[in-house]
Every structure is written in C-alpha cells, then in structure tokens.
Design a protein around this nucleic acid. Structure first.
Lengths: 187, 187
DNA sequence: CCCTCCATAGTCAGCGCTGACTATTTGCAT
DNA sequence: ATGCAAATAGTCAGCGCTGACTATGGAGGG
C-alpha cells in the first residue's frame, strides 16, 4: 500500500522530498492512512533502487540539503500496475476484541459492559468527526474526485456504524444471556 | 495479541508444544486469527525468557523430541494483565480500497464497477460461511462460552455486511455520479 | 541579543512477522 | 516391500515498520 500512496502523491503533486511527502499525506489522506516518516524514507530508498523514482540533492537558501524525488516512467508503470492489483478487493479482518471475548470467562462481565458503553460514545464521536472532515475536505475538490473521496468516507462510516451497532447489541446480549446475576456490585 | 492467544490456549487446554498449539488454534479460533507457526515459536521463546512459560524437552515413542510449554504463575498474571488492557477497545481501520479510490482517476470506472459486483457476491459467500462455522462450532460449547463466541461471530458478520452494503452503494454512486458516460466499451 | 520552542529533514537500531526451508515419521496405495 | 504424499516439529534469513534519536533553521518573547 505505501508505495502506491507515495507514487500517487508524486504523480499528483509533483516532485517532493520525504518530509514534504509526509506533509502532503497529512493534509490529504490523514483520514485513511497514517504512514510514518521512517516508512516513507524506507520506501523512497527502495523505489530508487528499483528505478521507480529518481533522487536529486538540492539546496534552497540557507536550509539544509534535501533529496527531491521524482517519479520515473518505470515508476508510473509500477504505480498503475499496483493500483490495478488493488482491484482484487479482499476483506478478512481480525479484531483485538475477538481475543477479549474468546477469553472473557477470565473477566468481569459488568466491567466489559461498562467499557462497551463508553465505546459506543467513542464510535459516535468518530462518526461525527468523519462527517466533519468529509465536509471540510470535499468542499474544494473537483466533482469527480469528490465522488471518489466520498466513497472512501462512506466506507469508513459504514464500518464505524457496524462497530457501534455491535457494541450496542453486545451490551444487550450480555445483560440478558450472560451471567449478569453475578453483578452484585455496590449500590 | 499473539501472546494473549498463546497464554490463553495454554491455560484452557493445558501444556502443549508449538506445533500442537498451532493445531489447537486452527481448531478453535481459525475464524478470528491466523497466527503462523514461526510466530508461535517466536513468542514462545520470548515468553520463556520473560518467565511466562516454562519449557520441558520430551520424547514420546519414536517421535522426534518436542518442547512442551507450560504456563507459569507469572504467565497467568501477564495473561490477565494483557486481557484487561484489551478492555480499552479501539478502532481505527485502514482499507486497501481507500488507495484504490483515492487514485481512481487513473482507472476505468466500468472496470471498478465490475470488480465491486464480484466483491458483493464474495461478501455474501463469506457471510454464509461465517454462519455455517458459527453453527458448527457453537453446537458443543457450554452456554456461557457460546454467548461469547456468538459475540465474536456477530462482530465479524456486521463488518462483512458493512462491506457488502458499501460495495452496493458504491456501484450505484459510480453509475449515477461517476463519469459513466465514458463507458463506450465494445457492444 | 539571547533563549527557548517549534518546524524542518532525516537516520538507525531493533521488533514482530512470515515465506521458504530442513528433516523425520506415518499412512496408505501399489 | 516400496514408493510417495501428508503430517509432524521446528528453524532461519530477511522484510516492513516505527520509536527514539540527531541536528539544524527560523520565530517570537523577554
């Protein structure tokens, strides 16, 4: 995934140095990925060895030297190739919560329920944030691109909603089916 | 996550060697995780250094020597500690499809739509498989544990449904909003 | 004019993970 | 008896990633 993002950014926004790519990513796709700086440099180096980008040392004013990366023809091909490979959509998630519930017999059910309740509000906050970001970002985008970005946002939204629904139904399940009679808590 | 699974398995099913743990995982939690053999050995070694498990070489019949791992008191504490830390539920997914749609201007919309259509049926197959596995597995489980495993299955089910819904609405969005007029394909 | 803080630009050791490999044993058909 | 796949039990090199670090430049306050 990382190389696709880097090549795509270099294609769309022109030649950049590592740190600048980091900022471009932060400004444009922070909602979908969180690629760390060392990861960026790692892949830039690798892609240079592959001939997908070309590096040029540059000094601007009194600023320290920087390495500007430009996408090559070979890089454009690799980008398209990688993107087309992504057309083979797959989904096989694993959730940390799975382990939690698989071994839930070692835990206190009432405590789990309390956590799930705060989790529901967390998801609600995430959903609100997503909607806010979508409005803020897609405002100044050309129509075609806004549609695509909208698709990404709706993807995330649907999964956050799934997460919220799951937490809510789980609370109910634990309250009725679980050994909730063990909840002789204080009060 | 891996250490929690390994310690939990050793707790619930008793002392085992690496390969045996692999089988136990495959038989019990293959639907939620896919921990590879080398990963198991890596963590067993690490946990032995930490004093969470104790190793004992053993020979049975003509079979080659095996290293049996037993959970220690310290390991039991580490397990509970790790499990409780999982109570801090979090969710911040990234999807490969995000990159696909962020750079979708480099691709043919009609091709994307075709892929999404097969993706919908893939998700339907996954949903059917999940339901089948749930019935098969939870049949011979004690009530309490069945509830918990049911929670895990419903978690996965909800996300597969989200994925299916997303694919369906995306198809519609692309057909109406996208530049589908560029679909002067053969026929 | 100095001091501090943030932004800039990048490096590096080390962690977690796994594909690909070794080596032996058992089951089973021929 | 023989051959051959599958199961058993485990190892190892190397990949991708990132927390923590270095080092310099400008901005602003006192």
């Amino acid at each position: 995934m990382v190389p696709i993002y880097l090549l795509g950014i270099l294609l769309r926004f022109g030649p950049q140095h590592g740190y600048q790519i980091k900022r471009t990513l932060a400004e444009n796709v922070a909602d979908f990925t969180s690629i760390k700086l060392p990861t960026i440099y790692y892949h830039l180096e690798k892609m240079e060895r592959e001939g997908w980008v070309s590096a040029k040392r540059e000094t601007e004013g009194t600023r320290p030297e920087r390495t500007i990366f430009t996408i090559t023809q070979k890089g454009r091909e690799a980008f398209l190739d990688g993107l087309e490979r992504q057309l083979a959509l797959t989904y096989r998630p694993t959730f940390d919560a799975d382990a939690l519930f698989y071994f839930a017999d070692h835990l206190d059910f009432s405590q789990i329920i309390r956590r799930l309740e705060t989790y529901v509000t967390q998801m609600e906050r995430s959903l609100a944030e997503i909607r806010r970001h979508q409005l803020a970002i897609s405002a100044d985008l050309p129509q075609d691109h806004r549609v695509c970005v909208g698709i990404i946002f709706s993807h995330h939204t649907l999964h956050y909603q799934a997460e919220k629904t799951w937490a809510q139904t789980t609370i109910k399940a634990l309250l009725s089916g679980g050994n909730t009679d063990a909840q002789a808590t204080d009060h």
